[in-house]
């Protein structure tokens, strides 16, 4: 097992096998299995409480799974701290509520982890940070503090912050759910660009238009299980699963 090093090898980017997760006696995930290839774009949807967020939070150990196996870039996620650190370095995450560090400037938010975790020299870290801020279209906000930005801008900073670590995989946990409607597009545009460049990504979202546009595969979860997975065309038009059709009618119906 690689320990402390960056896990990079062939095989699927993320391999989840028979994953179980309990909160006390409540079972949040039931024997979930999923394989995500490199460069693949996965959209996960489903009603609230279905285990979508729990599943992707298990991938970088923000939640500890109770059964089954998770292998990320060939490294198994277990109690080995070296493995956990190695995987977290390669897996970026964007949260529903942005979770920027409010006491640091936008630039510092983006430079912190590369400098400390990857030991990137200051000048390089700053150049990388400015490049990604350019990419998410807010280079002029570098010296501001998160609290001085709108929600959409904050979320784009959060994406840039994760990208500055040059991750292999990006996880998005409902990235637009806390945004005002007029800001959703600016964040989704950034994610679409990222997807078109071949980033491996798993995105939990209710934005079905986005799913149709970028997903290679749409996963539908309910009750802690993966109920159905299919390419978007098939998923949206010809799903035969009752629960999927009910969910889609609720999300798309108005």
């Amino acid at each position: 097992m690689i320990s402390g090093n960056s896990p990079r090898s062939s095989g699927p980017a993320v391999l989840i096998e028979n994953l179980d997760k309990y909160y006390g006696t409540f079972q949040a995930l039931r024997k979930v299995s999923l394989s995500v290839d490199r460069g693949e774009r996965i959209v996960v949807c489903g009603p609230s409480g279905s285990g979508k967020s729990t599943m992707i939070r298990c991938i970088n150990r923000l939640e500890q799974h109770n059964g089954g196996r998770i292998t990320v870039l060939g490294t198994e996620l277990n109690d080995d701290v070296g493995n956990i650190d190695g995987i977290r370095r390669e897996v970026g995450m964007v949260f529903q509520h942005f979770n920027l560090f409010p006491h640091m400037t936008v630039l510092e938010n983006c430079m912190l982890a590369p400098m400390i975790v990857r030991k990137v020299p200051r000048a390089d870290a700053e150049a990388t940070a400015r490049r990604y801020l350019e990419k998410v279209r807010i280079p002029e906000q570098a010296m501001k503090y998160p609290g001085q930005l709108s929600g959409g801008q904050q979320q784009r900073v959060a994406i840039a912050r994760a990208l500055c670590m040059q991750p292999e995989i990006m996880l998005f946990d409902e990235p637009t759910s806390a945004l005002d409607p007029e800001m959703i597009a600016e964040v989704l545009d950034v994610i679409v660009t990222l997807a078109s460049e071949g980033m491996t990504m798993i995105c939990v979202t209710h934005e079905m238009g986005f799913a149709r546009r970028v997903a290679d595969r749409v996963i539908f979860m309910d009750g802690g299980e993966i109920v159905e997975q299919a390419p978007p065309d098939e998923f949206f038009t010809s799903s035969r699963n009752e629960r999927t059709r009910q969910f889609l009618s609720q999300v798309l119906g108005h």
């Binding site: 923000l62 970026g92 979770n99 560090f101 975790v117 959060a158």
Partner: peptide, 15 residues
């Protein structure tokens, strides 16, 4: 201190 900031820091690989 928000749990979110701590999770963000962890997810970036900070010890």
């Amino acid at each position: 201190v928000g749990k979110g900031q701590v999770e963000a820091a962890l997810s970036l690989g900070l010890g």
